[in-house]
């Protein structure tokens, strides 16, 4: 996250501008791609497990992969696929998946504020497809505006990783050594910590918002009364509470431009 986009400050004469645009596209794409690699790595064991479960449950490997490539969401497609396997009605499958995915409304809304203004509608609708919890947070914590090429680069790796992991899990259908599988389980969380800790050192308001989020999330997880909440709903509720807290008590946090 510390790498600066050097292309930003290049002052090339006007007649070079086409080449310059090209260079900037490639640079932004490569930077995004680099930022996406740990996400891709973290997705492989999760999507592997998804492929495994789906095929064990009776779906062909290509259908499992198709689900991953068209849904690109962990909690939503796990739940939806479970319901397919359980023979649930189409309405129930659709509704449950929608509820779990509602949190993307907030993320898309937040990210839309950071996109470079010159993006076309088609480009926006393309990028929207690649918003996940992980790609969103990485993009949202970028210091500069989000360009089309940066976001595209960021999405490509995780998308390929998510699809490949599912296919492998579906085909292999035998477990990785359990110890390695366990150890890989921490990948995404370690990445989350690497993302969230540095800004909390610089801003007290961010630190408190993260603390509130962690606290409320733990309460919702551990209190038996809230057991009925799915992971997707939990994230949505916690996000709303923690952000209301931040906006009410620290409306002018130092991280805001």
């Amino acid at each position: 996250m510390k790498i600066q986009r050097q292309g930003r400050n290049l002052q090339a004469p006007l007649f070079f501008s086409r080449t310059r645009t090209k260079i900037r596209f490639t640079e932004d794409f490569r930077l995004g791609f680099r930022h996406g690699l740990p996400i891709a790595l973290g997705y492989i064991p999760v999507s592997f497990a998804f492929g495994l479960l789906a095929v064990k449950g009776g779906l062909p490997a290509w259908v499992a992969t198709l689900i991953s490539l068209t849904n690109l969401t962990s909690a939503g497609q796990f739940a939806g696929t479970n319901l397919i396997l359980a023979g649930a009605s189409l309405l129930e499958i659709t509704f449950t998946t929608l509820i779990i995915n509602l949190r993307y409304l907030l993320m898309s809304l937040s990210l839309a504020q950071k996109l470079a203004p010159d993006l076309t509608l088609v480009q926006r609708t393309m990028l929207a497809f690649g918003i996940t919890d992980e790609t969103f947070t990485v993009a949202a914590l970028e210091k500069t505006e989000i360009t089309f090429s940066y976001m595209l680069g960021l999405i490509v790796g995780p998308y390929v990783g998510w699809g490949t992991g599912t296919l492998l899990g579906g085909i292999v259908c035998t477990l990785l050594p359990p110890t390695l599988q366990n150890a890989l389980g921490i990948t995404l969380y370690a990445m989350f910590i690497a993302l969230v800790l540095p800004p909390t050192k610089k801003s007290r308001s961010i630190l408190l918002v993260v603390a509130v989020a962690a606290l409320v999330s733990s309460i919702l997880t551990w209190l038996p009364v809230f057991r009925f909440l799915s992971a997707g709903w939990r994230i949505t509720i916690v996000t709303i509470i923690a952000c209301l807290f931040g906006a009410k008590f620290f409306p002018n946090g130092s991280h805001q431009q």
Binding site: F192, V209, V210, A213, A231, G246
Partner: peptide, 24 residues
């Protein structure tokens, strides 16, 4: 201001307490 806090809140919510159960 609300939207600017979303990524941090999402990260906090996703990480805790889930990380404690991530490795078995």
């Amino acid at each position: 201001s609300f939207l600017s806090y979303v990524p941090y809140a999402v990260l906090g919510a996703m990480t805790f307490p889930a990380i404690l159960y991530a490795t078995g």
